[in-house]
Write a protein that binds this DNA or RNA. Structure first.
Lengths: 151, 151
DNA sequence: GCCGTTCGAGAACGATCAGTCAAGAACGAT
DNA sequence: ATCGTTCTTGACTGATCGTTCTCGAACGGC
């Protein structure tokens, strides 16, 4: 009963993944979120409790969806450069995971739980996780690695 | 001529490295900086121009000092786990570099220049840069890797 | 056709943000 | 001693921060 929602919660969280993944937690304001998610202020707080609550929801969806998809690419692609290149160009954006790892995990235990979950997923898909992480990090910072060409 | 400075610019920048490296750029307020650097508001803006100016100064010092020191450890230590463990426990804190890579380099070209400089330094010291980066990233997120013992 | 409930819309809250300004204090030079 | 210069100090600005509140609209149940 009651008035039905005017927004899709899953879509809203997905949009939050994009914003937090591009601008970081501290760098994303609630105004940013409100104007990009199609969710109004009151509904946002009613649904997620706080900015941090929405961030955690976004991170969980990111791990379950985007990180899982990336893990599949990693498992299916031989060669780290090719796998990371494929993810960077056609795969899911892992910006939120990278940002969560350095920005929030050290100071927010619940974030650390989710990032650990993500790392475990990736480790299962590929034993040389560290090398993949480092390459993803450099790819985000400098753009796609120019030294890699070809499929 | 003129009144002498009441603070050491090098020390102030070093303190800024710590703050930015722990709390990120967007997560560190000018009030934070003022209360931890021993530099008052006016002097901060007179000396560095803006919060971003101070951030760039901090990042440059970080690359020239802390990243250079880490590169020496990497070059002098055989074994990635041992090298990263040594840096994490007794070496320089590379938090600012990691944060700059994911938070600022993608949106601030001058930051990207400095992070590229840092990566070049590390690459010269160790060919398997990506693996080292990934391990540093995980170490920051979850704390020192429990699987590594000895040395 | 109301009632209870949930949501939409946006004004409003105190706090904090980055950045500026004016007034005075501490120096070197004359 | 006085002047020009540079730095200190803290109040101040308008904007933006995360969060809360109010009020009306849209629903299911009776």
């Amino acid at each position: 009963m009651g008035r039905p929602r005017g927004f899709d919660e899953d879509e809203a969280v997905r949009a939050a993944v994009g914003l937090f993944g591009r601008q970081s937690f501290a760098g994303t304001s609630v105004d940013d979120l409100v104007s990009h998610l199609g969710v109004h202020r009151g509904s946002l707080y009613k649904t997620f409790g706080s900015k941090r609550g929405l961030y955690l929801a976004a991170l969980r969806q990111h791990v379950d969806r985007d990180v899982a998809a990336a893990a599949e690419v990693f498992a299916a692609t031989t060669g780290i450069d090719a796998a990371v290149h494929r993810i960077a160009t056609a795969g899911p954006d892992l910006g939120l995971l990278l940002l969560a790892l350095v920005e929030r995990a050290p100071v927010d235990p619940e974030v650390a739980v989710e990032t650990s979950r993500a790392l475990a997923r990736l480790r299962d898909a590929r034993a040389d996780l560290d090398q993949a992480l480092g390459l993803l990090l450099r790819t985000r910072a400098i753009g796609p690695a120019p030294e890699f060409v070809g499929e």
